[in-house]
């Protein structure tokens, strides 16, 4: 179990860095969606299933959706 947590932590650090260094816009929302999934996975491994449930729905679905809507609005109204 500890090895698994260590691997997911390294993937998490890499995913967080990827979110920050992805500066093009629709791409960053997708990377954020993946990041939310990895955080949810880490939370399940740390024995916090309730928190993981909220984090996956919110971080992978709700926030990227709102980001894409904002970008579509800004792009379409020019």
């Amino acid at each position: 179990m500890n090895v698994l947590i260590a691997i997911v932590l390294v993937v998490l650090a890499a995913a967080g860095t990827a979110v920050v260094f992805t500066r093009e816009q629709p791409s960053q929302a997708i990377v954020l969606s993946f990041y939310g999934l990895v955080v949810g996975l880490l939370l399940v491994l740390l024995q916090a299933p309730a928190v993981a449930l909220s984090e996956i729905v919110v971080g992978s679905v709700a926030i990227p959706m709102i980001v894409l809507l904002v970008l579509a609005r800004a792009h379409g109204a020019r």
Binding site: L53, S54, V58, A62, M65
Partner: peptide
């Protein structure tokens, strides 16, 4: 948790 799942149903 249930609240966010229900909201995603609307989505």
């Amino acid at each position: 948790q249930g609240g966010v799942v229900l909201a995603s149903v609307a989505l």
